[in-house]
Nucleic acid binder design. Sequence first.
DNA 1: AGGTGATTATATCGCCGCGATACATCGATG
DNA 2: CATCGATGTATCGCGGCGATATAATCACCT
Lengths: 178, 178
Amino acid sequence: MFEFALLGLLHEAPMHGYELRKRLHDLLGAFRAFSYGSLYPTLRRLQRAGLIVEEGPEESALSWGRRARKVYKLTPEGKERFADLLANAGPQTWDDDSFGVHLAFFSRTPAEIRMRILEGRRRCVEERREGLRERLAKTGEQIDRYTRELHRQGLESTEREVRWLNELIAHEQSEQDE
Amino acid sequence: MFEFALLGLLHEAPMHGYELRKRLHDLLGAFRAFSYGSLYPTLRRLQRAGLIVEEGPEESALSWGRRARKVYKLTPEGKERFADLLANAGPQTWDDDSFGVHLAFFSRTPAEIRMRILEGRRRCVEERREGLRERLAKTGEQIDRYTRELHRQGLESTEREVRWLNELIAHEQSEQDE
DNA sequence: AGGTGATTATATCGCCGCGATACATCGATG
DNA sequence: CATCGATGTATCGCGGCGATATAATCACCT
């Protein structure tokens, strides 16, 4: 997930850690933390896996005056990995956190996979919606007032998201036709 | 968080792990996973900390035919701990995951603390809302279409939640007056 | 000239929670 | 009587977070 996001960003241009984190925070800060405590370990993991490499120091030397920053760039294997993650977009792609990240990289996602992700997400939200409906129906009176409020609000929220997803999907389809 | 939830549940009655998890799943399954992979380690942690104790086997012996289940009950220190967690309800209480859990135990939460939590949560959601507004305003055209959709939907969703919280707070106040 | 605080920058640590998995028993259904 | 789903306890590895350390640079105020 973090891995996916980093590979996606590095697709645009080589960057150093701080900048990657900043871009992610800009892009998805409202939905995810993307803390340094994950960033640097993940970078090292990607590096060890050969998906990214540290750029030679020559280029950073150009913009000197700045200091000690490590610029990473994508390797061919890294690009491949990103494509693989998209191609195998599975169930864990639909959940709250992951979905937002994937949306943020939709512009470099093939149309068919965009569709798969949107529909998977919809199914997932619909399931949550059904769960909430059942709970609200079943319990009736004996449930705590506050908990019921929470479920009511959750239900409304999921209903809205399903509608939103339907719009996105419809838009995708209309684009596919043209 | 998990700790808070378990202590809260055991406040009602002594229970064994499976039942605790089931109740939590019932109560908050739509918002949180509460997997076994956290449950049992957390129970052991609470036990080591002296917040819960394993009930003597005599009582479980009564309902025998069943098997090998460990019933935990709250110690005085456990009750104290729960009260402390409520009293010190701080910033990390306002975030998405935690708030839902706290709501679920509002019936055993003092009115003033309920208020603190609701208002803290509101401030937190308002901040996210402002962040989303800025992003939507600032970027204007250059932002990815999908990302903008995501932020639009997020903004709408936070606006609704603020309204909902206002209602809850108003209700609390009217109850306090009577 | 000097101090102070925010920003840029990298990195580690411990903790929490999840998903997967293993194992064993019980009840109901066929 | 076999098989499947629910009951029940437990562990493992991993990903991500918050807190924290360190340090240089920059902008601003005095």
